[in-house]
């Protein structure tokens, strides 16, 4: 440790990564709270949940799962590409990831649009006539997927920032912890979806 002053300048990648992981924990607990609510109401209204879940489009859900898994792989590969010094491949892989994230949101848009066309959205007249468990299921469906979509958007912005930082050479082969952390955040979005997908689409 040098004697000069500047306590902000020394770099500790493990610390940055640990910080990112701790942040991921808070996100997991945030969604954990929602999963608790889901589990409780599912245990109270099992039949209503089945009926309501039947109305979700499993096909779109599955497509979105595949999209997220592939994007997870591309972002993981981009770290490898950067560490082996292949900058142009890194950028391509990141661009692919961001594109896939966008595709996910487009799918989500159509899925939500379809539901809203059928007058199933929070606060609609039809919703209030549904059975209590169905109402709660759709409430949870919108709340959980909306919060998840918000994380996708945040993740896209983070990856976009990192993309330009790599392009301008501020994130490099030897100083790549930012990309790694961005990747970790993106995997978190994937992790949550891995649980959301069967709980919302597959319990019929």
């Amino acid at each position: 440790m040098e004697n000069s002053i500047s306590h902000t300048e020394h770099r500790d990648d493990t610390a940055s990564k640990m910080g990112m992981w701790l942040f991921i924990f808070t996100e997991l607990l945030l969604f954990g709270g929602l999963f608790i609510v889901y589990a409780v109401y599912r245990s109270i209204y099992p039949d209503d949940f089945h009926i309501a879940a039947n109305q979700l489009n499993t096909f779109i859900g599955t497509i979105n799962t595949v999209i997220l898994l592939v994007s997870s792989m591309t972002v993981a590969m981009s770290v490898t590409a950067l560490r082996t010094g292949n900058k142009s491949l890194t950028l391509k892989l990141l661009a692919t990831t961001i594109f896939l994230a966008f595709l996910f949101l487009v799918n989500k848009y159509f899925e939500w649009g379809l539901k809203i066309e059928h007058h199933i959205y929070p606060g609609s007249e039809l919703m209030l006539t549904l059975k209590r468990g169905e109402l709660l299921f759709f409430g949870l469906y919108y709340f959980m997927t909306a919060l998840h979509a918000l994380h996708i958007i945040v993740g896209m912005i983070i990856l976009l920032v990192i993309y330009f930082k790599i392009k301008s050479g501020r994130v490099t082969k030897d100083d790549n912890v930012l990309l790694e952390n961005g990747g970790l955040y993106w995997h978190l979005v994937d992790l949550i979806w891995i649980f959301l997908f069967p709980l919302l689409y597959l319990i019929t």
Binding site: I44, G123, K131, R132, L135, L136, G139, L140, F143
Partner: peptide, 16 residues
């Protein structure tokens, strides 16, 4: 949005 997570009238459980 009247989701009713904790509103007994809408099926929710205030104890939760």
């Amino acid at each position: 949005f009247k989701i009713g997570f904790f509103d007994p009238n809408l099926g929710g459980d205030p104890i939760l």
